[in-house]
Design a protein around this nucleic acid. Structure first.
Lengths: 189, 189
DNA sequence: GACCAAATATGATTTCAATCATATGTATAT
DNA sequence: ATATACATATGATTGAAATCATATTTGGTC
């Protein structure tokens, strides 16, 4: 779901684009044209260090934006590549900047959107820092991080192996901390 | 170092405040008055879940801002408490919002600041997800995350025990991937 | 220079998640 | 109804970080 604030932009500021697996979206040093929203699929954002190592910046998945910093920079800071078949919305930089300049409410909504994202990432860092798989899974479920009903995706999202995640879920149910009400569906007790 | 953009605010929009260890800075549901910058010390941001568990949102340390989302909300979303003696700058919400409304450049700079923070947190998530302590330490050093010269702080920052961190540093030096040029000082080869 | 607290270093042991291996269940397409 | 790909589940083993225990070094203060 594209964040509501972007609907305030002119219609031609939003452009759907499809990418095949392994296709390049943009490269580091390309001139920036906008930020992106992921409708479906997954995008890998990477950079190369001076000594040639590959630095993973982020993998952006469904319902996430990426390349926000591109709004404020002439060049993209990294390479973006589709990990799988991917559908994106390109949100035009010039349109965003123009809207920010002319509509203070839009500018404020954009800052608010970014501030919310900061909050989300901070919490994710805390969760990922939890050593115990059981406690990490419990925290993630509590935070609503199980979005669909695929446990394997939750596992990847919180940095656990899928096996450890299944086990933790089973333990938590056994310990009466969670209820499993359907396949891939749990609630906190 | 307070981000430059906040210097564009009127002087009375910035207020230094000191807190003793364990002192409350704000509580969840308090009316928001602004965001904060940490000059020194550490602040714990926590919330309580419906069933009484304590949820750690973030620990904010030196040179970080926190409570950014307060700019866009009537109430604080969590409790903030000083973990140790702490010196903060309170950045006045009304002044920030007024400046955003009247100065599009300021609004843009604030969004840019937040976008940079998003980038930093995303990268930190990736680093923290690296299983191998050696590779995690290497990535963190490469990203300039060793800010002072206290390895123990780096360890806490990247989610490793201090022992594992010292060991990894020693391994990386032995493997010729890092050079130690002083106590607590390393560079990538 | 002496003292002290904290950081760093290192050895040994424990813990538990990752990994490997296999089996079962399930949603989807035909 | 059947076939298939993928998710889920579970047992066994491995590996490496956490933890525990000590020792040494170092920076700051007096």
């Amino acid at each position: 779901m594209l964040p509501k604030l972007f609907h305030d932009l002119p219609a031609n500021a939003l452009k759907n684009i499809n990418f095949q697996k392994s296709e390049t979206i943009f490269r580091q040093y390309d001139e920036t044209c906008g930020l992106y929203f992921v409708i479906s699929g997954k995008v890998s954002l990477k950079r190369h260090s001076p000594n040639g190592d590959e630095i993973i910046i982020h993998n952006a998945g469904k319902n996430e934006t990426f390349a926000e910093a591109a709004l404020f920079s002439k060049e993209y800071h990294c390479d973006a590549t589709a990990i799988e078949t991917t559908q994106l919305v390109l949100i035009n930089k010039a349109a965003v900047l123009a809207q920010m300049a002319s509509n203070p409410i839009f500018a404020m909504n954009l800052s608010a959107q970014f501030a919310r994202q900061i909050q989300i990432y901070r919490r994710r860092l805390e969760i990922q820092a939890i050593q115990s798989a059981d406690e990490r899974v419990y925290a993630a479920i509590g935070d609503g991080m199980l979005q669909g009903n695929i446990i394997k995706e939750l596992a990847a999202h919180i940095g656990l192996s899928h096996e450890a995640t299944y086990r933790s879920l089973a333990n938590l149910v056994k310990r009466n901390k969670l209820t499993k009400f359907a396949r891939g569906k749990y609630i906190i007790k």
